[in-house]
Design a protein around this nucleic acid. Structure first.
Length: 383
DNA sequence: AAGGAGCGCAACCGCGTATCT
DNA sequence: AAGATACGCGGTTGCGCTCCT
């Protein structure tokens, strides 16, 4: 994890909870008195996203949240040392000039798949650069989520899925991502397209207004007004229920109650088959809203630390558990350090033994220290 | 056979929100 | 606190294919 470098070494780590970085650096003499650097902090650890005054507890919380770290990016500072504060402002998502648009080639797909399978799915901004793609991060995200993801279903929506879409649309309006979350293996884009190209017409043919889900009457004005996410839910829910309904109202309440308990809820979807028969289907949904029978996306930890027992604990309050999570982060980053094909110069003053002792310190210590990080770590890392 | 229209879908665009310095 | 930028979502576009005349 701790790639130590004589001038400055920055390790960025990314997780779905955000971006932080860990820097261990020798503070240049002319830095003392600036940027929160005090005279006695020859070495500092700065956790991006945390203030300088963050406590050890804050650091641990941060690490715990970021336990699904999936890849890291190493930057080396320019020769001659650091003259200005780094990382000021966010990086642009891509170099707009050098970015390729339009359909993806097989070669690009291959690069993207390989990269994500090896490194996990996160930080779209940095991904194109790291994967060697001349694409915007946004474009990569779309390509992956809508087309390349291994758990995607292919082909037309089944009758049952279509029914679900209609039901959900009646309740949720054009909130395609919400609708898609109820249909394993289907993307919001796919559902949106299917709605616009197939279902809309079908409903119109059946004499049902695809917007209001009510029978079309002759005096009904053809106004393109539909329930959108901007429309209050309560207002939407006053709409007449359709012939087939999903009894989810009480489920949502239940889910709210069970938010942190890792429980499973059953949704009963009631639909009518083509033969007119009423059909009930029970669908198990966990408290995150994922379907139990859904093929899960590969989690970054599974990809990166495959041989370890990396199942994260459900509770995040135990100190030993948080220690394990930190361990996971460190294990990952350590392996990253070993494998990263980057030509940094390891400072001779930072021998591996020093590094190991730092790691040991981190992993064995499980007490909450209320001092600031800079003080603690300056002691830890003191040479 | 040719060309125009329609269709389906992948990809892009723009906006709102979250997050970072 | 303000400004910049990433991310996610819904709307829209544009291209390639098929169908129709």
């Amino acid at each position: 994890m701790f790639v130590l470098y004589s001038k400055i070494q920055t390790v960025y780590t990314f997780s779905k909870y955000g971006v932080y970085n860990i820097q261990i650096r020798r503070v240049p003499r002319d830095y003392v008195g600036r940027y929160g650097v005090s005279r006695h902090s020859d070495y500092r650890v700065i956790i991006r996203g945390l203030p300088f005054s963050a406590s050890w507890r804050d650091l641990k919380d941060h690490m715990r949240k970021a336990r699904d770290v999936c890849f890291a990016e190493v930057f080396r500072d320019s020769e001659g040392g650091e003259k200005k504060r780094i990382n000021m402002g966010r990086q642009p998502c891509c170099d707009k000039n050098g970015v390729k648009k339009g359909p993806w080639s097989a070669e690009e797909d291959k690069k993207l798949i390989n990269f994500i399978l090896n490194n996990g799915q996160c930080c779209w901004r940095s991904l194109p650069k790291l994967a060697g793609l001349l694409r915007c991060g946004k474009s990569c995200r779309l390509r992956w989520t809508n087309y390349l993801r291994p758990d995607l279903k292919r082909g037309l929506l089944s009758d049952y899925e279509e029914k679900m879409v209609i039901d959900l649309h009646a309740r949720l309006g054009n909130r395609w991502s919400k609708i898609a979350s109820h249909l394993p293996g289907r993307t919001d884009n796919e559902i949106k397209n299917h709605w616009n190209t197939h279902i809309k017409k079908k409903l119109k043919k059946m004499g049902i207004d695809p917007i209001t889900h009510k029978p079309i009457t002759s005096e009904q004005p053809n106004i393109e007004q539909q329930p959108t996410k901007k429309q209050p839910i309560s207002q939407q829910e006053q709409q007449t229920p359709t012939e087939s309904t999903i009894t989810e109202t009480k489920v949502e309440t239940k889910q709210e109650e069970n938010k942190n308990m890792g429980t499973t809820t059953i949704i009963t979807a009631q639909s009518q088959t083509s033969s007119g028969r009423q059909e009930n289907k029970n669908i198990e949904v966990n408290n995150n809203g994922f379907y139990i029978d859904e093929v899960p996306l590969m989690s970054p930890s599974e990809i990166l630390v495959p041989s370890e027992s990396t199942t994260p604990p459900t509770s995040s309050t135990s100190s030993s558990q948080s220690s394990n999570m930190i361990l996971q982060d460190l294990q990952f980053l350590q392996s990253f350090d070993n494998n990263w094909q980057c030509d940094f110069n390891m400072s001779t003053s930072w021998a591996n033994d020093d590094f190991s002792s730092t790691l040991d310190y981190l992993l064995n210590d499980d007490s909450d220290m209320n001092n600031t990080i800079s003080l603690d770590w300056s002691q830890v890392l003191e040479v």
